[in-house]
Amino acid sequence: NQESVVAAVLIPINTALTVGMMTTRVVSPTGIPAEDIPRLISMQVNQVVPMGTTLMPDMVKGYAP
């Protein structure tokens, strides 16, 4: 099972992602793959992401799977 990126904290809208904001977990449905965390650093979320929420591609500005 592939791990997906999950919010480790509440991430406010338009916040640039940092390593500490993200964790990984096997979830269903799957979100952004864990191995993409290095690509996500400094990208901004386009909505509020509650802690424990799986990051989906459409939540991150400029992210393309």
Results as ranks from 00 to 15, higher is better:
Ser4Gln: 03
Leu10Asp: 10
Asp58His: 10
Gly31Asp: 01
Asn46Arg: 11
Gly20Asn: 13
Met43Tyr: 11
Leu55Phe: 09
Ser4Gly: 04
Val27Ala: 13
Ala7Phe: 02
Arg39Leu: 07
Glu35Leu: 07
Val48Ala: 12
Val19Asp: 08
Glu35Trp: 05
Val45Gly: 00
Val60Glu: 01
Glu35Cys: 04
Ser4Arg: 02
Tyr63Trp: 14
Ser28Arg: 02
Leu10Met: 15
Met56Asn: 10
Gln2Trp: 04
Val49Gly: 00
Glu3Thr: 04
Val26Trp: 05
Pro65Gln: 09
Val26Asp: 15
Gly31Asn: 01
Ile41Trp: 08
Thr54Arg: 03
Gly62Ala: 15
Gln2Met: 11
Val60Tyr: 01
Met22Lys: 01
Leu40Tyr: 03
Ile13Glu: 14
Thr23Ile: 09
Arg25Lys: 13
Thr54Ile: 07
Ile11Arg: 00
Thr15Asp: 05
Ser28Leu: 09
Asn1Tyr: 03
Thr23Met: 08
Thr18Pro: 01
Val48Lys: 08
Leu10Pro: 12
Asn14Pro: 01
Gly62Lys: 04
Thr30Glu: 15
Leu10Phe: 13
Gln44Thr: 15
Thr24Glu: 08
Glu35Ser: 07
Met43Pro: 00
Val48Tyr: 08
Ile32Val: 06
Thr15His: 13
Ile32Arg: 00
Gly20His: 15
Gly31Thr: 02
Asn1Trp: 03
Leu10Cys: 04
Ser28Gln: 15
Arg39Glu: 03
Met22Leu: 13
Asn1Thr: 14
Pro33Ser: 09
Thr53Glu: 07
Gln44Asp: 03
Pro33Val: 12
Val60His: 01
Asn14Trp: 15
Ala64Gly: 14
Pro29Thr: 07
Thr18Gln: 10
Gly62Ile: 04
Thr30Met: 15
Asp36Ala: 11
Val48Leu: 12
Pro33Trp: 09
Pro29Cys: 05
Leu17Pro: 02
Ile13Trp: 06
Glu3Phe: 04
Val9Cys: 03
Pro65Arg: 10
Asp58Gly: 13
Thr54Asp: 01
Val9Gly: 10
Thr15Ala: 13
Pro50Lys: 04
Thr53Leu: 05
Ile13Cys: 04
Arg25Glu: 15
Pro65Gly: 12
Val6Pro: 00
Thr54Asn: 02
Thr30Val: 15
Ala64Arg: 10
Lys61Thr: 06
Arg39Phe: 07
Ala16Arg: 09
Gly62Asp: 09
Leu40Asp: 00
Thr30Ser: 08
Asp58Cys: 13
Tyr63Gln: 10
Leu10Ile: 15
Leu17Phe: 02
Ala64Leu: 08
Gly31His: 02
Tyr63Phe: 11
Ala16Met: 14
Ile41Glu: 12
Met21Phe: 06
Ala7Asp: 00
Gln47Ser: 14
Lys61Phe: 07
Thr24Val: 05
Asn14Ser: 07
Ala34Phe: 04
Val60Met: 05
Gln44Cys: 03
Leu40Ser: 00
Asn46Ile: 12
Met22Val: 09
Gln47Trp: 04
Ile41Val: 07
Met56Phe: 07
Val6Asp: 00
Gly62Phe: 06
Gly52Trp: 09
Val26Tyr: 06
Asp36Ser: 12
Pro57Lys: 15
Ser42Ala: 14
Gly52Lys: 06
Gln47Lys: 11
Asp36Tyr: 09
Thr18Asp: 14
Val60Thr: 02
Arg39Thr: 08
Val9Tyr: 10
Asn14Ala: 15
Pro38Arg: 07
Ala7Tyr: 01
Asn1Gln: 10
Pro33His: 09
Thr23Gly: 12
Thr24Leu: 05
Val48Glu: 08
Ile13Arg: 08
Pro65Val: 10
Met56Gln: 10
Arg25Gly: 14
Val9Ile: 14
Leu17Asp: 01
Gln44Pro: 06
Leu40Val: 10
Ala7Met: 02
Ile13Met: 10
Val60Asp: 01
Met21Pro: 01
Met56Lys: 10
Ser28Glu: 15
Asn46Gly: 13
Val5Met: 03
Val19Arg: 07
Val5Asn: 00
Leu17Gly: 01
Val45Tyr: 00
Val9Phe: 14
Ala16Thr: 14
Met51Thr: 13
Leu55His: 00
Glu3His: 06
Thr23Lys: 12
Val6Tyr: 03
Leu40Ala: 01
Gly31Phe: 02
Gln47Glu: 11
Thr24Trp: 11
Gly62Thr: 08
Pro50Ala: 15
Ser4Ala: 04
Ser42Pro: 03
Val19Trp: 12
Val27Leu: 06
Gly62Tyr: 10
Gly20Pro: 10
Ile11Leu: 13
Gln47Val: 12
Val48Asn: 11
Arg25His: 15
Val9Ser: 14
Asp58Glu: 13
Val9Ala: 12
Thr54Leu: 07
Val5His: 00
Val26Glu: 15
Val27Ile: 08
Gly31Leu: 02
Ile41Arg: 12
Met22Cys: 03
Pro12Asn: 14
Pro38Leu: 07
Thr54Ala: 10
Pro57Asn: 08
Pro29Met: 04
Gly20Leu: 11
Ala34Ile: 06
Thr53His: 08
Asn46Asp: 07
Val27Cys: 03
Val5Arg: 00
Thr15Asn: 14
Ala34Gly: 09
Val9Thr: 13
Gly52Ser: 15
Leu55Gly: 01
Leu10Gln: 15
Ala64Cys: 06
Val27Arg: 05
Thr30Pro: 14
Val45Trp: 01
Asn46Trp: 06
Thr30Lys: 04
Ile37Ser: 08
Ser28Ile: 09
Arg25Ile: 04
Val48Asp: 04
Thr53Asp: 07
Asp58Val: 11
Thr23His: 15
Val49His: 01
Pro50Gln: 13
Met56Trp: 05
Thr30Trp: 14
Ala8Val: 10
Pro50Leu: 13
